[in-house]
């Protein structure tokens, strides 16, 4: 039985397979409409989330399956003190696959060690968010057709941004990738990711606080939100919230074929005026996330069509 806890749980070949299935789903949705008939996905969300949960649920419904949902930790057994391990064992009796979001880092791993069904990490604190990475990867693949040789800029909260950590980890396995890290000093990428991922894989990278200076060289600009829930201190959050706001003016020097990604939700870090720019692909990215989650559910449930 397989789980997806960290994007590194999937080889590049497996990611390519998922991309292939997702693209086939996009082309031939009817072929998959009953693929998970009789199967149940349990979405266990112990932290507020709308889009990721809806994406998982939409994915399962479009595969003809059903969904059991825990959306509010306050009303769940966790509020009574049940452990993640016990929750995983219990839900294994009801469902065929689990998607779990939890504010505590490592909770989905604990669930996977105790469940008798596959567990998908739908985000654990500031740690990992591998299915967002799958959405990002499909988006880059569909926009660029390849990963090799791309210059990818990450902008905003690179310290707590789990989507950033997971995507850097995934991209570091492709040749010729060049990473540009754009953030205020307080929200820089953690040094262990620089050492253990970028330096270990020989990925060239640069760090800057100046988005405009690096804009012309970027093929991909991955914007992130400074997330209030990652801060213990409201003052720090308010001070850093508006560090980088992307406006049409700032895009003047950007490549004509730049792709702007964002894991969403955005607050104000991308001006609404940019939504109409063909380089803004963040809403396509949302849709791609659903297709990749469909492909992943099929893989983990070992559905053969």
């Amino acid at each position: 039985m397989r789980n997806l806890i960290d994007i590194q749980d999937l080889s590049t070949t497996e990611i390519e397979e998922l991309i292939g299935v997702a693209e086939d789903i996009i082309e031939n949705p009817k072929k998959y409409a009953e693929a998970c008939h009789g199967k149940k996905l349990a979405t266990l969300f112990f932290e507020p989330s709308t889009r990721t949960r809806l994406s998982f649920e939409a994915a399962m419904y479009e595969l003809g399956g059903n969904v059991l949902s825990v959306t509010d930790a306050l009303s769940s057994s966790a509020a009574k003190g049940e452990s993640v391990a016990d929750t995983a064992k219990t839900v294994s009796c009801y469902a065929d696959i689990i998607a779990m979001r939890h504010p505590k880092e490592g909770a989905p791993l604990v669930a996977s060690l105790n469940a008798s069904i596959p567990v998908i990490n739908a985000g654990d604190g500031g740690h990992n968010h591998p299915t967002q990475t799958l959405a990002d990867i499909l988006t880059i693949h569909r926009e660029k057709g390849h990963f090799e040789g791309l210059t990818v800029g990450f902008c905003g909260d690179l310290k707590f941004g789990r989507t950033v950590h997971s995507l850097i980890s995934a991209l570091s396995r492709y040749a010729g990738i060049h990473i540009v890290l754009i953030s205020p000093a307080e929200l820089k990428l953690p040094s262990y990711i620089k050492k253990d991922v970028l330096q270990k894989n020989g990925i060239p990278y640069e760090q800057t606080t100046d988005l405009l200076a690096v804009m012309p060289e970027l093929d991909i600009l991955y914007m992130t939100r400074v997330q209030k829930e990652r801060f213990f201190n409201e003052e720090d959050y308010l001070r850093l919230r508006d560090s980088y706001i992307l406006t049409p003016d700032k895009l003047k020097t950007a490549k004509a074929d730049l792709s702007i990604l964002h894991p969403l939700p955005r607050v104000n870090e991308i001006a609404v005026a940019i939504d109409d720019d063909p380089r803004a692909v963040y809403f396509k990215q949302v849709k791609n996330g659903k297709y990749m989650r469909m492909a992943l559910i099929l893989k983990l449930l070992e559905v053969v069509l």
């Binding site: 993640v84 391990a85 504010p103 505590k104 880092e105 490592g106 909770a107 791993l109 500031g126 740690h127």
Partner: peptide, 12 residues
């Protein structure tokens, strides 16, 4: 790490 699951699940 105060965000680690081991901080709330004592038996782990």
């Amino acid at each position: 790490n105060p965000r680690c699951i081991t901080t709330t699940e004592q038996e782990l």
